[in-house]
Design a protein around this nucleic acid. Sequence first.
DNA 1: ATTAAATCGGACAAAATTGTCCTAGTTTAT
DNA 2: ATAAACTAGGACAATTTTGTCCGATTTAAT
Lengths: 144, 144
Amino acid sequence: MFSKACEYGIRASIYIASQSLEGTRVSLKEIAEKIDSPVAFTAKVLQQLSKNKIIESVKGSSGGFEISKNNILRIKLSQIVYAIDGNNVYEGCGLGLKRCNAKEPCPVHNRFVEIRAELKNMLESTTLYDMTMGLEQGLTYLRR
Amino acid sequence: MFSKACEYGIRASIYIASQSLEGTRVSLKEIAEKIDSPVAFTAKVLQQLSKNKIIESVKGSSGGFEISKNNILRIKLSQIVYAIDGNNVYEGCGLGLKRCNAKEPCPVHNRFVEIRAELKNMLESTTLYDMTMGLEQGLTYLRR
DNA sequence: ATTAAATCGGACAAAATTGTCCTAGTTTAT
DNA sequence: ATAAACTAGGACAATTTTGTCCGATTTAAT
């Protein structure tokens, strides 16, 4: 569904958010450990998220990554996905046709429209805060 | 959502089905033309579908691919997807965790469960026949 | 029998994705 | 000032996916 890069990006964002809520900035190394991802590859993903204003990076000693409370509340899962995977998830025909729409649909167009709409709706209504909630209470996991 | 291989596989199956309903067996070359896919790559996909009894291949001159009326009615989209992409679509955590279930969920597990269930339901309730219908009437397209 | 039109299947090639390494900066603390 | 702990980013490597090529085999028609 999502690329590996995107999966790491979402997991990283959630971890950074949970730590930011506690008032602590986290390093790349710590993030990679906590979400069980390859360090250098995760670095690239974080750069991308940083450029897209999803997370904030602080250089230098005692630097690291963080997200402001406001952004934790505001940022939607859809924005993270878009920053890394673009709009492939929303657009894009289920059968890979370049031009596929209500007027000139592929044989499964109508069936896919509904599901895609629900997916989109879910991604757009889930905030970083929503995803962070369970973590601190030990109800959800980022590495398994 | 699906791999390229799977997209080609679904489109090819639909085209073969539509031609089989007309009583004509089709060659690899014709299929690739009609669904706008790379010939040799499509050949591999068709081999896989053939091994999985989704389509029937006939060797030799005047050979090609076909699907029996019974199978056109019986075969579900889910079977085609499974034959090529395995169960990645159904199983597999949205965030890429190996172990992610109701008891030890990732932060988006519950949100994904619903969507995945609907997708599964759609794939399992759509037959090859269903997908073939619109084609002959010029209502749907396989290459665009 | 020979030829032509097919699929089959192995080996290879290209492209995209995933992952690694190393150097250059930046910032804080001493 | 210097060292230590960071991120930034370019270059490269490995893996997976996608795509190609070609010889072998099968079958029908002549």
